[in-house]
Simulated scan of single mutants.
Amino acid sequence: MLAQAVEHLIKNIVDFPDDVSVKSHENSRGELLRVRVNPEDIGRVIGRSGRTANAIRTVVQALAEDHKVRVDIMDVRR
Score class of each variant (00 low, 15 high):
15 D>Q: 13
39 P>L: 08
68 K>G: 04
8 H>D: 10
41 D>W: 00
53 A>C: 08
42 I>M: 13
27 N>S: 06
13 I>W: 13
35 V>D: 07
27 N>L: 02
24 S>Q: 14
7 E>L: 07
17 P>T: 09
54 N>D: 06
24 S>Y: 02
21 S>P: 01
58 T>I: 00
69 V>N: 11
44 R>H: 10
55 A>N: 12
73 I>N: 04
5 A>S: 13
24 S>I: 03
71 V>H: 13
24 S>D: 07
49 S>N: 11
45 V>N: 13
30 G>M: 09
51 R>K: 05
4 Q>M: 14
73 I>W: 05
21 S>H: 08
75 D>R: 13
36 R>H: 03
11 K>D: 11
75 D>E: 15
15 D>A: 11
8 H>F: 12
8 H>G: 02
11 K>H: 11
2 L>K: 04
25 H>Y: 01
28 S>K: 14
40 E>Q: 13
19 D>I: 08
43 G>R: 01
47 G>D: 14
48 R>Y: 09
78 R>G: 02
44 R>A: 11
54 N>Y: 00
48 R>M: 06
26 E>L: 04
12 N>H: 07
47 G>N: 10
40 E>H: 08
19 D>N: 14
48 R>K: 14
31 E>G: 00
60 V>G: 06
41 D>R: 03
26 E>H: 02
20 V>N: 06
27 N>I: 01
1 M>D: 03
48 R>Q: 08
19 D>M: 11
26 E>M: 04
77 R>N: 11
57 R>Q: 02
64 A>G: 03
60 V>L: 09
76 V>C: 05
15 D>T: 08
75 D>W: 12
27 N>E: 04
64 A>F: 03
61 Q>A: 06
8 H>S: 15
32 L>I: 09
52 T>D: 04
52 T>K: 11
34 R>H: 04
45 V>T: 15
76 V>I: 05
73 I>F: 04
57 R>G: 02
37 V>P: 09
34 R>W: 03
38 N>G: 05
27 N>R: 03
78 R>I: 02
78 R>W: 02
56 I>D: 08
55 A>S: 15
71 V>W: 09
72 D>P: 02
10 I>A: 07
52 T>M: 12
3 A>C: 01
77 R>D: 08
53 A>Q: 04
44 R>L: 15
46 I>K: 07
66 D>N: 15
52 T>R: 15
29 R>F: 05
21 S>E: 14
18 D>P: 00
22 V>N: 06
15 D>P: 01
77 R>C: 06
49 S>E: 14
14 V>G: 11
1 M>N: 01
61 Q>Y: 00
49 S>R: 12
28 S>R: 07
24 S>W: 01
67 H>N: 05
63 L>A: 09
21 S>M: 05
74 M>N: 10
5 A>Y: 10
33 L>T: 05
30 G>H: 09
69 V>P: 10
29 R>I: 00
57 R>F: 01
76 V>H: 01
52 T>A: 12
19 D>R: 13
44 R>D: 10
53 A>E: 04
53 A>Y: 07
19 D>C: 10
27 N>G: 06
69 V>C: 08
11 K>V: 06
72 D>E: 15
26 E>F: 02
50 G>M: 09
32 L>P: 01
31 E>F: 00
66 D>Y: 03
35 V>Y: 03
10 I>H: 11
27 N>F: 00
48 R>W: 03
75 D>C: 14
65 E>N: 12
